[in-house]
Design a protein around this nucleic acid. Sequence first.
RNA 1: GCCACCUUAGCUCAGCGGUAGAGCGGUGCUUUCGUAAAGCACAGGUCGUGGGUUCAAGUCCCACAGGUGGCUCCA
Length: 667
Amino acid sequence: MRITLPDGSVREYAQPVTAGQVAADIGAGLAKAAIGAKVSGVLTDLHRPITADATLAIVTKPRQDKQGLSKGEVDPDALYLLRHSTAHVMAEAVCRLWPDAKLAYGPPVDSGFYYDIALETPISSDDFPRIEAEMKKIVEENRPFTRYELPPEEGMGRLKAEGNKYKIDNAQRAIAGGAKSLSWYATGQPNANWEDLCMGPHVPATGAIAAFKVTSVASSHWHGDVNSDRFQRLYGTAFFSQADLEQHQKLQEEAKQRDHRLIGTKLGLFTIDEQVGQGLILWKPRGGMLRTILEDFLRAKLIELDYSLVYTPNIGKIDLYKTSGHYPYYADSQFPPIKMRDSDDEYLLKPMNCPHHCKIYASDPHSYRDLPVRLAEFGTVYRFEQSGELSGLTRVRGFTQDDAHIFCTHEQVPGEFAATIQLVQFVFKTFGFNDVHIRLSLRDPSSDKYVGDPRNWERAESQLRQVLRDLGMSFTEAAGEAAFYGPKVDFIVRDVIGRKWQLGTVQLDYNLPERFKLEYVGQDNATHRPAMIHRAPFGSMERFTGILIEHYAGAFPLWISPEQFRVLPVSDKFNEYAMKVHAALKGADFRGRATVDLSNERVNAKIKVAQDDKVPYMLVVGGRDQEAGTVSVRDRVRGDLGAMPLAAFIEKAGREIASHGGEIVKV
RNA sequence: GCCACCUUAGCUCAGCGGUAGAGCGGUGCUUUCGUAAAGCACAGGUCGUGGGUUCAAGUCCCACAGGUGGCUCCA
């Protein structure tokens, strides 16, 4: 048998050998650090025999520095093994504490692992210390994870005898998926210790689990089906050192400080009032200023790109949405219709802007010479999101899309689509979003939720794919994520706690032009149906603002900061000069958003408050400044920049604003 | 919508059967001050809402509303 190692060297063995033995042959240090193996690319147990020629990479525990922190980036495979194994330990601890617990499924996830458990008794966070204490015992016993296999029939017999329908289901799925045997892992010895039906792989023994924590409990459903059995999903995480765990917890804490709901309250950006309604955002003056700046920025760009700005009402007759196909398709996720007093007419709060824009297009005859027609609007829409889904600014019931619809010939689609993609990228680049995932969302051919001619879909999907390729963009494809009327390209970012949100989107639609019978007269003097592109670079002003708050931790770059300058007189003897400076900033070409702090406080206190308010520039003024006509500039990040003539500061600030510059500031 | 947890002053939170607390913020006074919080005083709460248990309920129980974390959903 030839075992090829990552450095290309080959070791020959006459008999089946385990990765652990190979590791020992290479060196004692490697053997000691080894916790698993990648055999021909497949992650596996250290002690599973290798029976054929294979490539082999030993998965090792990370080395640690003097503080006990793992050096470099920890191998994701190593973390996978560790966390999968810790999930078993947690499950055993739960089974000890609640003997009637039935286990379902317990995989590693991004930052830890979970186990879905069917149990009548609710587990609460108060129980975590008890669970952790049991886990600690199991870890300290340093029991080996022992794998054994049973033939499918024998295995199923055993599972049926045990009567856990979830495990039976798991096993049936494994067999249906081609598994030739069922595998169990005993945490210790078979028949002597706790065991779980599991594909593996695992670390060699529980002692490898250096640091762990039960982090939260939530609810989940069998196969994700709300009508099916409910589980308690117990989340935890594990690391190779206590220091790693502590660092992880510290980072989590820091991330929470960036949460837009916290910062939004602190900085007075927005509020949500119970009496106004769930998921309905009240933009406070500072948030309103921020939004206005964002809208002005985009509006200027749209005018430059030959968009036409339109306005449409917040409601429309239900018939409009029957024509568009949105109703009753999404009846459940809309606010109920408004019934009229003196007729049978019903109106809907508009869930989308496109039908209105289609009607604007249809109100005039169009020649191919007019196309493309690009209708843009900051359009507010209402969607009845499930109450449990609402979250700050990121998931709301009323929001404003920076929406536009481009009506064009089929020949113009690739060009227009590419231009809109570039617009979205321009927006993201301006705000320094570098970690954006681009997803080509396609239909799921096996689903019946999609409308329109499959040939149109195929053409649309391949057009989009080609545009993305031509632009040299990296993207993933996701079947089943398309809108019901067409494929789309979505721009996805994560919030501080790792949740993914769609911001920008560009969608291709052959359906609505059909439904609204939109037309243009071609060069051939015949009528043709235009194609339609929906696009929203920000997506929703609410969500974009929420993510932006987290992105900058509330410390907005000068050009979008709701308050750019705060003048701080060192005592009220200099209030008059301070007000002059304030007026000069407001009167500058860029019409500075400036305030002056006339409170009866010492300058130290004024600085502290301005710093907390994340004001980019503080202008301290006292006697020296008054005499010399200067301002003493304090940068939010760099601190005191010293005195400079007021005119010089205004020039500097003007340049910074015009550049749309801004760095990401640490909390 | 489902499950768990949470809801006390504008904000952050303590109090967990026995007459409502702190810090910050607010107001007033004193201080007139040069780069991350001067001092003193005062105001501010039917403890989310509605029921119940109890001699007595922020405190225990139930329902509802809102929030948080998940699940499901997301045109």
